[in-house]
Design a binder for these strands. Structure first.
Lengths: 137, 137
DNA sequence: ATATGACCTCAGGCTGCTAGAGGTTCAAGT
DNA sequence: ACTTGAACCTCTAGCAGCCTGAGGTCATAT
């Protein structure tokens, strides 16, 4: 049995975050010691590691909840899990696309200024008007 | 003079958000009608457009506040504005890098499953353990 | 005069945590 | 057996950056 501190160190998830996940229903309320402290089994550690991995991949709490729900029914078809992963991939690709547009524009803005005073500053002028933008947004 | 609704439509910034920016000190408290409703000048519309543009580029409220502060002193050197833009560019590039790692892993996870049941599902297994990951994270 | 829509303020909620106050328990050392 | 000190407990509040809704007022057209 692990204390919450040991669990935290082994998974890299901070203690308040563990308690938060319990509150959010991602982790079942664990056993308690006589003095009311949380004690975790290795299975619970595995589940927390699962949650952390999914969070690191950018999955929302709600999506993780669905996946856990699915994983409790190992004999059902796994199309649901596939769908969640695919949706997540799609979301990540969209974010990358948007960020690359931003990158281009920021690169132009950040390197374009050779003025000396604010009133000539390309950064300020570029933000003040879209006329200097390459694409619409 | 524009009402808050007109301002909202012209800038694409929602009404509660405009009031929020005022509260945060990004917009000065505007004039009011006799009946205490906000009335905006074209200059205020321009400033809101500036704010929106900067937000769309991912700048934080605090960074925008600094830029506005700078733009009020047009005769000062503009190195500060350049720095803010460069920092933002750096942050965006970092986010892109991280997201691309996620993309690779998710793509592998989302396309790797040909099991039929949850207990064989590659998505679930990949999340449960890092053994299936390509890089550490 | 009245209807309707746009506006006002204020409070509370959202995500995903994090921090702090104020109190209890555990394990180790003496 | 006792004492320390770290680790734990619950609860509340806070962060960004808004959004929503309640309950009420204003503007304008008919």
């Amino acid at each position: 049995m692990l204390t919450i501190g040991q669990l935290s160190r082994r998974t890299g998830v901070k203690i308040p975050t563990i308690r938060y996940y319990e509150q959010m229903g991602l982790l079942a309320p664990p056993e308690r010691s006589e003095g009311n402290q949380r004690r975790y089994t290795p299975e619970e550690r595995d589940r927390l590691a699962f949650i952390k991995h999914a969070r690191d991949l950018g999955l929302k709490i709600e999506a993780i909840r669905e996946l856990i729900e699915l994983s409790v029914h190992p004999d059902q078809p796994c199309a649901g899990a596939d769908r969640i992963a695919a949706e997540q991939l799609h979301a990540v690709r969209e974010r990358i696309g948007k960020l690359r547009k931003l990158e281009r524009e920021l690169a132009r803005i950040a390197t374009g200024c050779d003025g000396e005073q604010i009133k000539d500053c390309y950064v300020i002028r570029a933000l003040a008007s879209h006329d200097l933008c390459e694409d619409e947004h």
